[in-house]
């Protein structure tokens, strides 16, 4: 039995791949699993609460779309991580005294290639 988290992932990737907004019925029809529409609606409501999904209330039934693309979310995550990253250089420097010349050369080669 798929958990809510798994369902959220499948629904989200459906919406990301879909060019247009989808109704809960569309989502259910496109999912592999056989689900009740109410389950799909629950998942969509959870995703909306997490600001991952926007709902078009003007149409009946309501239609859902991804709030941002996969790439935009990835960038959001990376910015946050890089913004809080500490200075690895100073931390790694403490190893430098304790490694041999050949190791240091190898390390430098890795660093240069990255």
């Amino acid at each position: 039995m798929a958990t809510l988290g798994d369902l959220e992932r499948s629904v989200m990737s459906l919406l990301w791949d879909s060019a247009e907004s989808l109704s809960a019925n569309d989502v259910r029809d496109r999912l592999d699993e056989d689900l009740a529409v109410t389950t799909v609606l629950t998942v969509l409501a959870r995703l909306e609460k997490k600001n991952m999904v926007t709902r078009e209330r003007s149409s009946r039934p309501h239609r859902y779309a991804a709030a941002a693309s996969r790439e935009e979310h990835t960038v959001e995550m990376l910015n946050e991580v890089l913004g809080t990253a500490s200075d690895r250089e100073a931390v790694l420097a403490r190893f430098i005294g304790g490694i041999s010349d050949s190791e240091a050369t190898a390390l430098r080669r890795i660093l240069r290639s990255s």
């Binding site: 990253a85 690895r88 250089e89 420097a93 430098i96 390390l107 890795i110 660093l111």
Partner: peptide, 10 residues
């Protein structure tokens, strides 16, 4: 060393 792209240890 690899997981810190902008490091200037070199």
């Amino acid at each position: 060393a690899l997981s810190t792209p902008e490091m200037s240890l070199i």
